[in-house]
Deep mutational scan, measured.
Amino acid sequence: EEPGTYGVALYRFQALEPNELDFEVGDKIRILATLEDGWLEGSLKGRTGIFPYRFVKLCPDTR
């Protein structure tokens, strides 16, 4: 996996908008950016989108 910051999904998130990223509990999401209003941008399984930061637990930065 690529170096960078990752978050592990604490809850299932179902995308409601085309720019959102849906995921299941336990998915490991690569964090790409921190956005305003409590949203993160991340990538998972070749898809990129935004999601609420409270749905993931950030992992320590590992290489």
Rank of each mutant, 00 (worst) to 15 (best):
R54Y: 09
L32Y: 02
G26I: 02
D27V: 00
Y53V: 15
R54D: 13
P52I: 02
K57F: 03
V25Y: 07
L16P: 03
E17A: 14
D37R: 05
L58A: 05
I29G: 02
Y53R: 15
P18G: 06
A15E: 02
N19T: 10
Y6K: 04
F13D: 05
L16S: 15
E1S: 12
D27C: 01
E24D: 13
P3F: 14
F51L: 06
I29F: 05
D61T: 12
P52E: 05
N19W: 08
S43Y: 12
D22V: 03
P60T: 14
A9M: 11
L21H: 06
A33G: 10
F13K: 10
F55C: 12
A15Q: 02
G26T: 01
T62N: 14
R47T: 03
S43L: 08
E20N: 10
Q14M: 07
R47E: 14
R30G: 06
S43K: 11
T5V: 08
D27L: 04
S43P: 00
L44N: 05
P52M: 07
P18R: 13
G42F: 02
Y6F: 14
T62M: 14
T34P: 05
G4T: 14
K45G: 12
G7E: 10
A15C: 04
L16T: 15
G4Q: 14
D22S: 14
F51Y: 06
L40H: 08
P3W: 10
T48A: 03
R30T: 04
P18I: 08
L32Q: 09
A33Y: 05
F55W: 08
L16F: 12
A9F: 03
E2D: 11
I50Y: 06
F13L: 02
R30D: 04
T34Y: 12
V25C: 08
L10C: 06
N19H: 11
F13S: 06
T48R: 12
T48W: 00
T5I: 10
T62R: 13
I31V: 07
L21W: 00
A15I: 02
Y53C: 15
R30M: 04
G49F: 02
L44P: 05
N19L: 06
P60L: 07
K28F: 04
A33P: 07
Y11T: 14
T5R: 10
L16G: 14
C59Q: 15
S43F: 10
L32T: 09
F13M: 12
R12Q: 01
G49D: 05
F13P: 04
R12Y: 01
I29A: 03
L40P: 04
G26F: 03
P60D: 15
K57D: 09
P52D: 01
L32D: 06
L10G: 02
Y11F: 13
D27R: 02
L32W: 02
A15D: 05
L44W: 06
S43G: 03
L16Y: 11
V25G: 06
S43V: 08
D37K: 09
E41R: 13
E36D: 12
S43T: 15
V8E: 10
G26L: 04
E2I: 13
T48G: 03
F13E: 00
T62L: 10
V56T: 05
E24W: 07
G4R: 10
T62V: 13
E41Q: 12
D61F: 09
I50S: 05
N19S: 09
Q14G: 03
G7I: 01
E17P: 00
L35C: 10
Y53D: 15
A33S: 14
F51H: 01
L58N: 00
Y53Q: 15
G38P: 00
V8L: 10
I31G: 06
F55D: 04
F23A: 05
R47N: 06
L10Q: 05
Q14F: 07
L44I: 11
R63H: 14
L44D: 08
R63F: 10
T48P: 01
A9T: 04
G42A: 03
G42T: 00
R63A: 14
D22L: 01
L21C: 01
R54N: 15
T62S: 14
A15W: 04
L16E: 13
F55V: 04
D61C: 12
F23C: 03
E36I: 00
P52A: 03
G46S: 06
L58Y: 06
L35I: 11
E36T: 09
K45A: 12
K45V: 02
L58H: 05
F23I: 11
T34F: 12
L32P: 03
A15F: 00
I31T: 03
G4W: 09
L35H: 12
N19D: 09
R12N: 13
R63P: 15
E2V: 10
E41C: 12
I29V: 06
G49R: 05
E41K: 14
D37I: 00
I31M: 02
I50M: 09
F51P: 06
E24L: 06
E24G: 05
R63Q: 10
L58W: 07
G7Y: 04
R30E: 08
R12W: 00
K45E: 14
D37C: 10
T48Y: 03
G42M: 00
D37H: 09
G46P: 04
E2F: 11
L21T: 06
E36A: 14
G38F: 03
L16K: 12
I50G: 01
P52K: 01
E2R: 08
F23K: 11
R12V: 06
K45T: 01
S43W: 08
L35V: 10
V25K: 14
R63L: 13
L32K: 05
P3I: 15
Q14L: 09
P3L: 14
F51N: 02
T62F: 11
E24T: 09
L10N: 01
P18N: 09
R30A: 11
Y11V: 12
I29T: 04
P18F: 04
Q14K: 10
L35N: 05
A15H: 06
F13V: 03
Y53K: 15
L21D: 00
G4L: 13
T48V: 12
G7R: 02
G7D: 01
R54S: 14
L32M: 08
V56L: 07
G7N: 03
E2G: 11
L35F: 09
E20I: 04
G49Y: 01
R54G: 13
P18V: 08
P18C: 07
V25T: 07
E1Q: 03
A9W: 04
F23V: 08
E2W: 14
L10D: 03
K57V: 04
V25D: 00
L10M: 14
F23Y: 03
R47P: 00
Y11H: 14
T48F: 06
V56K: 00
P60R: 09
D37W: 00
P3K: 15
D22P: 15
T5F: 12
D37A: 07
A9V: 01
K45F: 08
E36W: 04
G26C: 08
P60H: 13
V56P: 08
F51S: 01
L35T: 08
G38Y: 04
Y6T: 07
V56G: 02
P18M: 07
L21P: 02
E17H: 15
P18L: 07
T48N: 07
R63V: 12
G26N: 05
L32G: 04
P60S: 14
L21F: 02
L16A: 15
E36S: 10
Y53N: 15
I50W: 03
K45Q: 11
K45N: 14
E17T: 11
A33M: 07
I31C: 06
E24M: 09
E41F: 11
G42I: 03
Y6H: 06
F23E: 00
P60F: 11
D61W: 10
E2H: 15
P52F: 01
T62D: 14
G4I: 14
E20G: 09
T34S: 12
V8S: 03
I50V: 12
T48K: 15
V8C: 06
R54W: 09
E36G: 11
Y11W: 08
D22C: 11
A33H: 13
T34H: 14
W39A: 05
F55N: 07
I29R: 04
W39K: 07
T5Q: 13
E24H: 10
G46M: 02
E36K: 12
P3Q: 13
D22Y: 12
E1M: 13
E24S: 08
E20K: 12
D37Q: 09
P52L: 05
D61R: 09
R54L: 05
Y11S: 10
F23L: 11
C59T: 10
G7S: 09
K45C: 07
A9E: 02
L21N: 01
L21G: 00
E17N: 15
L35G: 08
R12E: 06
W39D: 04
G7T: 01
V8Q: 07
Q14N: 10
C59F: 13
L21R: 01
V25S: 07
Y6V: 11
D61E: 15
L40Q: 09
F23S: 06
V25F: 05
E1W: 05
S43M: 11
Y11D: 09
A9G: 07
I31Y: 00
D22Q: 15
C59M: 15
C59A: 07
V56F: 06
I29L: 05
L58D: 08
D37M: 00
K57W: 03
L32I: 10
